[in-house]
Design a binder for these strands. Sequence first.
DNA 1: CGCCGTTTCTTGACTCATTCAAGAATTGGC
DNA 2: GCCAATTCTTGAATGAGTCAAGAAACGGCG
Lengths: 141, 141
Amino acid sequence: MGNADYEQLLRGASLRVTRPRVAVLGAVTENAHADTETILGAVRERLPDVSHQAVYDSLAALSAAGIVRRIQPSGSVARYETRVGDNHHHVVCRSCGAIADVDCAVGHAPCLTASDDNGFTVDEAEVIYWGTCADCSLSQG
Amino acid sequence: MGNADYEQLLRGASLRVTRPRVAVLGAVTENAHADTETILGAVRERLPDVSHQAVYDSLAALSAAGIVRRIQPSGSVARYETRVGDNHHHVVCRSCGAIADVDCAVGHAPCLTASDDNGFTVDEAEVIYWGTCADCSLSQG
DNA sequence: CGCCGTTTCTTGACTCATTCAAGAATTGGC
DNA sequence: GCCAATTCTTGAATGAGTCAAGAAACGGCG
């Protein structure tokens, strides 16, 4: 994806096209599941003088617009990805915190259908699988 | 549940029985989904001079032993509950952060079966439903 | 093309849940 | 009861994230 595509995405969401936002979108695209600090570093390769606040603001704006997804497993800082709207889930390593994507094996899982529960109106189901990644499995025997 | 039951639980998990731990276990049992500050308050009704550190330590020990479960939806502080091992899930209100339990409608959902993915060995699936609680639905129209 | 109101960015201070550390007190096996 | 190991108290530190005020950039409009 080039910057033109990112600009398109922003305009399509009625967001102003600013250099920090384009850079953040690029950084998140190229660093799936990266935390804010990593994204900040990647953004500064494109735009050396952005403030961390601009990155936080951009991530919040992009999240609110549904262009990026914010994920935050227990015990982890916030992480972001651009793969949205395809109902995929995540596996998280208990040992090192690594995250990988998992496509939902079943097209639509019965358990995940939006419904009313306890008076709540549910609009999204988020699934996190907890386990151990290959590297940690090996190093721990 | 009385303190004797809590002590039993602790001994059963090979944990030392200390007054802070018994009080924390009682506080978590009576305050499902409470955050640490609420738990600290509830613990101090039983044991006025506990340090916050003792509560953190106890919660960590109880979590590690599987007696309490720590949950932490994005944007929320850590919360705890004693209902463990029955594969229930949570609905979280996007507006006010309220949490309620949801029993898995389907006995065992196909999508949630532990398996190997991306080299990960999965041992648990955690589901969080996001939506709006009844109160917030009303007050927001 | 240049102006203007609005949104966004910069700078810098601040919050607060959680963690760390050192020494004192408890626990439970003997 | 006594002792070693664990846990608790006290108090300071960490660090992701937020807040606030003023400067700059965006983009619609004439």
